[in-house]
Computed example of a mutant assay.
Amino acid sequence: MALTRDFKDTVVARVQNDPAFAQAMLDEAVTLFFDGEPDTAKLILRDLVNATVGFESLAQDIHKPAKSLHRMLSKSGNPTMSNISAIFAAIKHALKVEIRTTVVMA
């Protein structure tokens, strides 16, 4: 029988061991928000929170209940822009990176 690993565990391990992968996930979440795909962006942010600061620590950092943060970053969550901004800032700080996006003029 083949050994398998949970997808979320794989993402956590890769984010913690590969700074370029973590940066790419953060950049992709931002790009998805800008491109009108917030549901997918929130799920990527959820994985990044789990792999970096964790929901309890994030809750303390941005002064929101952890349970509310879990709901915000669910597919059906509806976070405010100020909450999304605070989440991005916390992840940015944890990863010690800047957000990089590419703007394409149509």
Rank of each mutant, 00 (worst) to 15 (best):
E56Y: 07
E56I: 12
S57T: 13
S57F: 00
L58W: 03
L58C: 06
A59D: 07
A59I: 07
A59E: 06
Q60G: 15
Q60T: 10
D61E: 13
D61A: 12
D61F: 02
I62R: 06
H63L: 09
H63T: 11
H63C: 05
P65C: 04
A66Q: 09
A66G: 05
A66C: 02
K67H: 11
K67G: 09
K67V: 13
S68D: 14
S68P: 00
S68N: 14
L69Y: 09
L69G: 11
R71V: 15
R71L: 14
R71E: 14
M72N: 15
M72F: 12
M72W: 05
M72E: 10
L73E: 05
S74K: 03
K75G: 01
S76K: 13
S76V: 10
S76N: 14
G77A: 07
G77H: 10
G77V: 05
N78A: 12
P79Y: 01
P79K: 06
P79Q: 05
P79D: 06
T80W: 00
T80F: 00
M81C: 06
M81N: 11
S82P: 08
N83D: 15
N83P: 00
I84P: 07
I84T: 12
S85I: 00
S85F: 00
A86Q: 08
A86W: 03
A86P: 04
I87P: 02
F88D: 02
